[in-house]
Structures are given as structure tokens and as C-alpha cells.
Amino acid sequence: MKARLKFSKAGSMRFIGHLDVMRYFQKAFRRAGIAVSYSQGFSPHQLMSFASPLGIGLSSDAEYLDVVLEDEKQAEDFLLRINQVMNEEIAVKDFTILEEEAKSSMAVLAACDYLIAVKKGRESFLTGQEKRETALRRFAARDSVEIVKKTKRSEKLVDIRENIYLLTDRREALEEFTRISYGALSLDLAEYTPVLYCQLTAGSVVNIKPELVLEALCFQEGEEYNGFSYQIHRLEMYGDRTAKKGEVHTLFGEAPCFLVPLSEFGRREEVQK
């Protein structure tokens, strides 16, 4: 039975890499006594996949993990059982059951929401309301946002303007735009000052890192960009209900794009006992 977990990752868990989070969940399922299906062969591994790896140092309230459970019984009291064996800084927030033919979260991923905050004790021009608003106004008026994309072989200029669906300094503006309420965040607001909210294209074909947008904004204002000053926090991930495999439809492009949070692809009702 396919299922999807949504979890948060905060605090010191920001320093645990993607592969280690995978190992963490493998062991957590065993501790919770949740039977996950294994691949065949002599070195079997649990069938699970992540929507999108979160870089070291970033935090999140919306990481997604798809997993194949042995049977329907495993879904009973799932959230209770799994959260009993979690550490303080990773919490499973949602659990949905997917249709057998459902595509993986990695395959449908199309966009992500992020919060960008300034760490306490660090300086950034973005903490000043006036400077921030001016910067955002200028940014919104731009026809193109060119960034240097580095690959192993070359560097090239890419315009990411159409991949930035929204960039604002107000949480309500993003919530209105996405029609989602993010609720209480796992980010400790005593340690960080939120300055920006954004929605960006994500997925295996085009994936825009929020750092790039931030860097472009700093560059536009002639400000130095220091990555250590900011905390980037993922707020939500979306799949595109309309795009076929390998296609990227941007939100304001010609092809239709219908973004739905990854947690809304399955059903949440209680499994019959």
C-alpha cells in the first residue's frame, strides 16, 4: 500500500544530510513496528523515496516521503506510532494513503514555497522595511532575472523570471496566493526574523533554489550576499496535476498548471479495521 508522509525538520536536524534522513526513517519505521515493503534480491532495502532532497542547513515544515507499506493494517494509528519514535526535531505532520497507480512525489513535484529569514545577530538590508519594499518593487518590475547556473562542465546564464511565481515580504500575501495556511512553524522565531516568502518552480527538470533568488535580489540592490546570514525554510511542496512526465509547466506559462500540495494527492480517512 502506497502512503505519503509529510514531516518537519528543524533545529540541529538541519545538519543531517538527505541520505542520513533516509536511514533515520528506515530505523524509525522499525522502532515503531511499521512494516515497510522491501525490494527483492539478496540485499533488500525498504521501498521509500523523497520528493526533493533538502540541502544541509535548510529547515522545513513540509518534507515528503513516499513509502510502500506491507498492508493496510500498517496505516492504523500511523501518526501516533511514528511520532512516538521520532526525535524532537523531526515530526511527522500528515499521513495520506495513495492509489496504487499514483505517481511518486518526486515525479509530480512542480513547485515549492519558502520562507527566508535573517538569523539573529546577523545583518541584512532586508530587515529594513523600506529598503526591502523598494527592492521587491524593483524586482517585480523586472522583465528578466538572469542568474549564472553552474554545471560540472560549464556556466551559463539562465532567466528564472518565469520560475518565480511570487516573491513577497508578507506571509499573508503568500497564503492568499497559494490559498494555504501554513499554521505554526517549526522555525524558532526567537532566533530568526522572517523577511521574504516565495513560491518557485521545483522538480527534477527545473529546480530553482531559493538561494539563487535571494542572491539575485542582493545583486540587484548592490548588496553583498552572505549565505550564512539567512535561514531558508521550506513551507510547502506542490505537484502539478496536469503535467505529464518530463514536462514542466510554469504557473503563468501557456500550458495549464494546476498546483496541489503533495499531501492532497491521497486520502486521509481512517482505514477500516
Binding site: F15, E88, K119
Partner: peptide
């Protein structure tokens, strides 16, 4: 939130920061 001895800046500039954060299961 656990308070760490090392700053984010240090932790992000060294190999395997998880060696120094503790907080392991059990």
C-alpha cells in the same frame, strides 16, 4: 530547540557536521 556549541557558520563549513551535534536517538 537544542542549543548547539558551534555556530551555523562553523557547522556549515566543516565536513559531516552531524559529528558534533549529538541528539542521537536514545
Amino acid at each position: 530547540m537544542r542549543k548547539l556549541a558551534l555556530s551555523d557558520e562553523i557547522l556549515l563549513s566543516i565536513e559531516k557536521p552531524a559529528r558534533y551535534i549529538g541528539g542521537e536517538i536514545n
